[in-house]
Design a protein around this nucleic acid. Structure first.
Lengths: 279, 279
DNA sequence: CTCTTCTGTGTAAGTAATACACAGAACTAG
DNA sequence: CTAGTTCTGTGTATTACTTACACAGAAGAG
């Protein structure tokens, strides 16, 4: 596993953005040099093909060879458009999330809470409609057009909260993480259901049954209480977990906004008072 | 589900837990049948070797072949102890997180907030000390001993909050997700620093410089405001993001606990009032 | 002592990412 | 028009990885 030469790492020339060529392409910088033979493919077509494949057969089906076959070209030709598989993944992600949807007209009078809530639900809807996105590991900070558009929308929702910029971006990351986590768990569940061929209740039931065998009131009193409750059986509110988490965060944010505090102290560390954290 | 021959997917015999053999072993069920030749290896030794490797060279270095080589055995011999690589990963995770540390003596008088905060900080410390754990994708609900011990500890912190069991587990998942997200971002950053060989400030600076080129006050006003602030440069508080997120969640939880509400309504959906979510 | 069961192992199949060099296309400079 | 330049798609080959399968031999059971 040799490492790159020096040069920071990322792509060589281009607009000096430090981004790989394919991403500069996605931003509309860098047009095609009119020199060589006309390309058979285009980046959008490659990405679209890969996305279709991912949507249809899951992310596991997306290999360079497979995408190339789908396009009717050789595997290596893809590397004329993308320098590594991971780069294709980034472009797929960007295409998959798309641009954030327009706000409904009545959003005019909304405050930050409604805007942020809508932002979270919109994002979640996109992820649940394209679960393969969740199988692409996040490699770094967002740099693609649509990802940044979502970030813009999120930050904009917090514009008039009086929060500091550091707090705003922290909030966006916090809620974005929540959305992704919850969507991932839902997708995992869905996968388990599909793979085992049984119903959601049965999957959950099997899990509860397994836990019952490993735990007991002596060693795991709190878990036992959980298992004895109807928390797993009562599936009346499928969104419960997501909505609960989101609303707790929004509540906490409301406290902060009302307090008029900006940056500075994020809040105490572990335990009561200032103590260095455990372990 | 007592009967079966197709048997869904998981392991065949054993304690009827539905868990693979290696995991039952980790729970102490299932002892070695005294029949065949004495095994050269033990599961703990394999896991320990893999963990050492992961800690030293990163998760990428952990392949079945490499672990076997490290142990001085053939690749295939590992499959006598583990049915798939993913199973080894689960065991590595469990070993990596270890048992939750003992609470400090003064924790006796702590309330749920302090207990939960300590829980989060403890978990974060473990992940930051063993960042390779973060490279193991989560495949399903926790079933290994230490994972469950952490879950027990988390639920126990919420014991006297009056929250419903569904709310408790949602809270644990929420905060667990936060911890993992933040630790993963920190680890990603660390990786970027190591790979590029430059300082954290330079990595952040490069990112800001890149964003400046793609965004502008017209298309991305909120992002522009962020970039013009000192949110990225002022690295006075390295923990800021984590503490901010955690304390916002705890604040929101405090509101909920004080309100005396239990299960039932997790809170509203997107937008003001009951509206079906967007897109 | 024989049988059964379990061990470690070699071999090989299948998949995957990607480095490298080459033939030929399309444009540009003269 | 011609030569040169640059860019295209491609075949080949390398490296690495997971895992199915069958076999030889060890250790206890009867």
């Amino acid at each position: 596993m040799a490492d790159e030469d020096d040069e920071g790492g990322e792509g060589g020339e281009g607009g000096g953005t430090g981004l790989p060529a394919s991403l500069e392409m996605a931003w509309g910088l860098r047009e095609r040099p009119g020199k060589g033979p006309r390309p058979t493919l285009t980046l959008p077509r490659i990405v679209e093909t890969a996305v279709t494949l991912a949507a249809g057969e899951g992310m596991d089906a997306v290999s360079m060879g497979r995408v190339a076959k789908e396009l009717g070209v050789s595997t290596m030709s893809l590397y004329r458009y993308v320098t590594a598989k991971e780069e294709l993944y980034i472009l797929m992600s960007d295409a998959g999330v798309g641009a954030p949807p327009a706000l409904p007209p009545e959003a005019d009078g909304w405050g930050w809470r409604e805007l942020l809530s809508q932002w979270a639900f919109d994002q979640r809807a996109v992820l649940m409609a394209n679960p393969w996105i969740l199988r692409i590991p996040i490699t770094g900070a967002p740099v693609s057009p649509n990802q940044l558009a979502w970030m813009e929308r999120g930050l904009a929702a917090l514009a008039d909260t009086g929060l500091g910029e550091g707090e705003k971006i922290s909030t966006i990351i916090l809620i974005g993480g929540l959305v992704r986590n919850e969507a991932t768990m839902a997708a995992d569940m869905m996968d388990a259901i599909v793979k085992s061929g049984v119903s959601p209740d049965q999957v959950l039931g099997q899990y509860v049954r397994t836990l019952r065998l490993m735990t007991g009131p002596d060693t795991h009193p709190a878990v036992t209480r959980l298992l004895e409750s109807d928390a797993f059986t009562g599936s009346d509110e499928p969104d419960f977990q997501f909505r609960f988490g989101l609303n707790r965060i929004l509540d906490g944010l409301a406290t902060r906004v009302a307090s008029g505090r900006t940056d500075g102290d994020p809040g105490p560390g572990p335990g009561p008072g200032p103590r260095p954290g455990g372990v």
